[in-house]
């Protein structure tokens, strides 16, 4: 299986990239890490006439840390986030999610922005971005900059709100207060690192007495897009989280809104079962991690 022929260009700047996109539109495709795009090209699921390689653009690899958020260049490699321990303290859910993203070989090439734009409903980083309510920065030559919450970005399987002439430039990750915050990610796949049959992620914040101040939970692989359930998770606020019945009721009600598909790997019913079990589990694990965050400071 070989890709169809294409032209290749490696621009030196974002400005040049946006000009090329303006000129070629739908015929062109941006390639960052290429870990989803190259296999799709090999299988001829897509055959762009022009590949614009943004893999080396330093402008897309910036990282700006501030107290309340982190602005991460879309071209940031997954592996460099995995290696950045300071970042893990600020974005514990992203750290947890990355452990499930592909394999070392793919994380060395794959980028954070590429994973979001690709919008695989079972991918980990899109789910983490949804749970954290990240904001996305996109740019095009004609329309300039555009920002939108990630909750409006995923439109369907492998379909994100990225215009033909647009480039995702940065992801703005909200940072939760370190003390009292805990995160967890879990999934079931046929082989570790494969596409998840179902996945779940949660981040919670508790006070020193263990009462929940803030919570979000979500699931991947169980609908056309990754799903987060902020309204259902809101039920946890003001409650202690060492209450399995409460966590289970959140997981059950969240799963009830999902419409998973049937495929040879797993039935819809099985995916629903996994989503419920996994969401309950990640809520419990996130609550443990949140409680544990107080231990060092006592």
């Amino acid at each position: 299986m070989k890709a169809a022929a294409f032209d290749y260009v490696r621009p030196d700047s974002l400005r040049e990239t946006l000009e090329l996109l303006e000129q070629h539109g739908d015929d062109a495709k941006l390639i960052a890490g290429g870990q989803s795009l190259v296999p799709m090209m090999a299988m001829r699921l897509t055959r762009p006439a022009l590949l614009i390689d943004i893999n080396r653009l330093a402008e897309l690899k910036n990282l700006k840390r501030s107290a309340g958020s982190i602005l991460m260049g879309a071209g940031t490699r997954q592996r460099s986030v995995e290696d950045d321990t300071a970042l893990h303290a600020q974005l514990p859910l992203v750290k947890c999610a990355l452990a499930w993203v592909g394999h070392a070989q793919t994380r060395n090439r794959g980028t954070v922005g590429g994973s979001l734009v690709h919008a695989d409903p079972s991918a980990e980083l899109p789910l983490a971005a949804l749970i954290l309510d990240a904001r996305l920065h996109l740019k095009s030559k004609a329309k300039g900059e555009r920002e939108l919450p990630v909750s409006e970005f995923f439109l369907g399987p492998m379909f994100s709100d990225t215009g033909a002439t647009e480039c995702l430039t940065a992801i703005e990750w909200p940072v939760w207060e370190r003390q009292g915050t805990g995160a967890a990610f879990d999934e079931v796949a046929i082989r570790h690192g494969d596409f998840a049959l179902a996945s779940a992620a949660a981040q919670v914040q508790v006070d020193a007495q263990g009462v929940c101040l803030r919570a979000n939970v979500g699931a991947g692989g169980v609908d056309g897009v990754p799903r987060a359930f902020p309204a259902i998770a809101e039920r946890l606020v003001g409650q202690r989280l060492d209450n399995d019945d409460l966590l289970r009721s959140v997981a059950v009600d969240a799963t009830a809104t999902c419409e998973p598909g049937n495929d040879p790997h797993a039935s819809a019913e099985y995916r629903r079962h996994l989503a419920t079990v996994l969401m309950e589990r990640v809520l419990r694990q996130a609550a443990w991690a949140a409680a544990a965050s107080f231990e060092g400071s006592k």
Binding site: Q35, V38, T106
Partner: peptide, 11 residues
């Protein structure tokens, strides 16, 4: 380590 089937030689 990377997969050399998921990378074009030009890259």
């Amino acid at each position: 380590p990377v997969r050399s089937c998921c990378m074009f030689a030009v890259q």
